[in-house]
């Protein structure tokens, strides 16, 4: 009984959101690092993709795990947002923030945008439903031509814009989320607080720059098919 109560409480709830969120951050960083192989040419990226596919147990465990973590994260977040909305039924006529950053005030918005973006991203590049044109091409080594698909996608200004919006949402969300999660998990120390505070924006910048580098490199023809 006690433990169920613990998770249901607003703070237990937040601990789970933080942990799942940090898990997702880990994935996003890993994902970005993997994708950076686009700069090493088609072979590197396609071999990397093939290697992942050659481990179906690992791949599907990771995929299902990620999905579970994401569902937990989102469901609890929705629950939290609803509870917070209820906590102040009548708002202020005039409101001035002193400290709260734009990122912190728009977590629900950036989170929602991210969700839509991720669904699109999965349909687009993972399942290939959004743009089936490059789905079944193989590269010279006989691997599925992930590289070609990516390059094809970001030569299209429409996709570039969609991905830019997604990256913006991701960056803003992470810039508050990471430091906030550390606080929620009770990680605080006078000597390291500045480091913890900087962790969010740093991770956000890292991920967004990495991803944007790929998109822009392709769009401006630095990386080409």
């Amino acid at each position: 009984m006690q433990r169920v109560g613990w998770f249901r409480s607003s703070s237990g709830n937040r601990v789970v959101i933080s942990l799942t969120g940090l898990g997702l951050v880990g994935f996003v960083v890993f994902h970005m690092l993997g994708n950076l192989q686009v700069f090493e040419g088609p072979d590197a990226l396609n071999t990397y993709a093939a290697m992942l596919r050659d481990m179906p147990m690992f791949l599907w465990t990771a995929r299902i795990g990620l999905l579970g973590v994401a569902i937990f994260h989102i469901a609890l977040a929705i629950q939290l947002v609803l509870r917070n909305r209820r906590a102040r039924p009548v708002g202020y006529a005039l409101r001035e923030y002193r400290h709260a950053s734009v990122a912190s005030r728009t977590m629900a918005l950036t989170g929602s945008v991210l969700l839509v973006f991720v669904v699109f991203h999965l349909l687009h590049l993972t399942a290939g439903l959004a743009d089936p044109s490059g789905n079944n091409r193989l590269d010279a080594g006989g691997h599925a031509d992930v590289y070609g698909k990516v390059v094809h996608a970001f030569q299209n200004p429409l996709y570039v814009v969609i991905y830019l919006v997604g990256q913006l949402a991701l960056g803003v969300h992470l810039s508050h989320a990471v430091s906030g999660s550390l606080q929620t998990l009770g990680i605080e120390h006078a000597a390291f607080n500045r480091l913890f505070k900087a962790a969010g924006p740093a991770v956000a910048l890292l991920v967004v720059f990495g991803n944007l580098a790929i998109i822009f490199a392709i769009f401006f023809g630095i990386v080409r098919a």
């Binding site: 607003s10 709830n13 509870r83 917070n84 906590a87 912190s104 977590m107």
Partner: peptide, 8 residues
């Protein structure tokens, strides 16, 4: 409500 780590 719950804490949003905004420090307002």
């Amino acid at each position: 409500g719950s804490c949003g780590n905004q420090y307002e």
